[in-house]
Computed example of a mutant assay.
Amino acid sequence: MDRTEDHPVVVAGGHAAFNPEPIADFIDCAVIGDGEQAVLDMTGIVRDWKAEGRPGGRDELLFRLARTGGVYVPKFYDVEYLADGRISRVVPNRSGVPWRVSKHTVMDLDEWPYPKQPLVPLAETVHERMSVEIFRGCTRGCRFCQAGMITRPVRERSITGIGEMVDKGLKATGFEEVGLLSLSSADHTEIGDIAKGLADRYEEDKIGLSLPSTRVDAFNIDLANELTRNGRRSGLTFAPRAAVSASVRSSTRWSRKRTSSVRWPPRTATAGGR
Score class of each variant (00 low, 15 high):
residue 155 R to F: 15
residue 199 A to Q: 11
residue 87 I to N: 04
residue 243 A to G: 14
residue 135 F to S: 01
residue 126 V to M: 09
residue 162 I to H: 14
residue 256 R to Y: 05
residue 269 A to T: 04
residue 170 L to A: 01
residue 170 L to V: 03
residue 14 G to M: 07
residue 10 V to R: 05
residue 182 S to P: 11
residue 94 R to L: 12
residue 230 N to P: 08
residue 162 I to E: 13
residue 47 R to Q: 12
residue 65 L to C: 08
residue 104 H to L: 02
residue 3 R to T: 05
residue 130 M to Y: 00
residue 207 I to T: 12
residue 169 G to K: 07
residue 88 S to M: 06
residue 174 G to M: 01
residue 206 K to Y: 07
residue 136 R to I: 01
residue 171 K to D: 11
residue 20 P to C: 05
residue 40 L to P: 05
residue 97 V to E: 15
residue 267 R to D: 07
residue 246 A to W: 15
residue 237 T to S: 07
residue 26 F to H: 15
residue 155 R to K: 14
residue 26 F to I: 10
residue 147 A to F: 02
residue 24 A to M: 09
residue 99 W to P: 03
residue 132 V to D: 00
residue 70 G to A: 06
residue 69 G to L: 04
residue 107 M to H: 11
residue 175 F to A: 00
residue 205 D to E: 11
residue 224 A to N: 10
residue 5 E to T: 11
residue 93 N to I: 06
residue 114 Y to N: 07
residue 63 F to R: 08
residue 181 L to H: 09
residue 175 F to R: 01
residue 71 V to I: 15
residue 139 T to F: 10
residue 108 D to P: 10
residue 169 G to Y: 02
residue 19 N to T: 12
residue 99 W to S: 13
residue 90 V to K: 00
residue 26 F to D: 15
residue 29 C to S: 11
residue 130 M to T: 02
residue 139 T to M: 09
residue 199 A to P: 12
residue 202 Y to Q: 07
residue 271 A to P: 02
residue 73 V to T: 08
residue 231 G to T: 00
residue 13 G to P: 08
residue 105 T to D: 15
residue 52 E to A: 14
residue 94 R to Q: 13
residue 258 R to M: 14
residue 118 P to M: 01
residue 227 L to Q: 07
residue 162 I to P: 11
